[in-house]
């Protein structure tokens, strides 16, 4: 079979043998993740397991990284961050990190990238339909919004770049259960619009609501990978890696 026929099989994100260091500390050990188009994958693991470092390594934000990272069949390892974003990979970091001095509209404008063929382009108007709160707040400074509103804004801001895959780092952290439920709805809407997502999470209840597949990370490597259904049938995995 020719390469042209094989390629659809590896569309999406494929990470292999990824190693990363912060200074002297070796953080990731042969990390491997695969995300197919339209899928939602949850990375589960406690703080320090390597979830955020995995995301940051993929996005070119960790100085010392080795390994294969390919996105839609093209290697993106070693590219500068903005190049990776322009190829359609979106990143929502933990701790929200909105621009507090800028208004909601200005925050959104920082994220603007050209439309992507095959995906309906995001406009502020279309975003306000998904995040109705933001419409009323569009002139407000980011620093004067609640934590939940800020979290919505970081996701909306990343969508302005018209990504085809989004890395979402701990979207439910520090949010009230009711807001987390709204967040789950929004993530399912994003999935329905054709986006793939990788979501790092510690809240198993939340992960259960949104994800197709699960990867359990511990000490910088994947210790278990499977479908959400399989994972739920394996309390032993949960006890072995997500507890002491």
């Amino acid at each position: 079979m020719s390469a042209a026929f094989e390629s659809p099989a590896v569309l999406g994100l494929a990470v292999n043998k990824l190693n990363a260091w912060y200074g002297q500390a070796h953080i990731l050990f042969d990390m491997a993740i695969e995300v197919k188009p339209g899928e939602v994958v949850a990375l589960l693991g406690r703080n320090g397991a390597g979830k955020s470092t995995t995301f940051r390594s993929i996005m070119g934000l960790v100085p010392k990284v080795e390994g294969d990272i390919s996105f839609n069949n093209v290697s993106i390892a070693g590219l500068p961050t903005y190049e990776i974003v322009r190829r359609g990979l979106g990143y929502v970091p933990e701790d929200r990190r909105i621009f507090t001095d800028l208004t909601v509209e200005e925050n959104l404008s920082v994220g603007v990238q050209p439309p992507r063929p095959g995906l309906e382009p995001w406009t502020p108007e279309r975003l306000y339909d998904v995040f109705p709160n933001l419409r009323e707040l569009r002139g407000r400074q980011g620093g004067r919004m609640s934590g939940g509103e800020q979290q919505m804004l970081t996701i909306a801001r990343t969508l302005m770049g018209n990504p085809s895959l989004v890395l979402l780092d701990e979207p439910s952290e520090g949010l009230a259960p009711k807001i987390v439920e709204q967040m789950a709805d929004i993530i399912l809407k994003m999935k329905a619009s054709g986006l793939s997502l990788v979501i790092s999470e510690q809240n198993l209840h939340f992960a259960r609501l949104i994800s197709d597949r699960v990867a359990v990370i511990e000490k910088g490597a994947v210790r278990y990978a499977g479908t959400m259904a399989d994972f739920q049938a394996r309390p032993d995995i949960r006890d072995a890696f997500l507890a002491v």
């Binding site: 693991g45 406690r46 703080n47 320090g48 952290e173 520090g174 510690q202 198993l204 949960r238 006890d239 890696f241 997500l242 507890a243 002491v244």
Partner: peptide, 14 residues
């Protein structure tokens, strides 16, 4: 302040 934040489920309980 949010003592359980950032911990795995069983660690939190302990």
């Amino acid at each position: 302040d949010e003592p359980a934040a950032g911990m795995a489920p069983r660690e939190r309980g302990e």
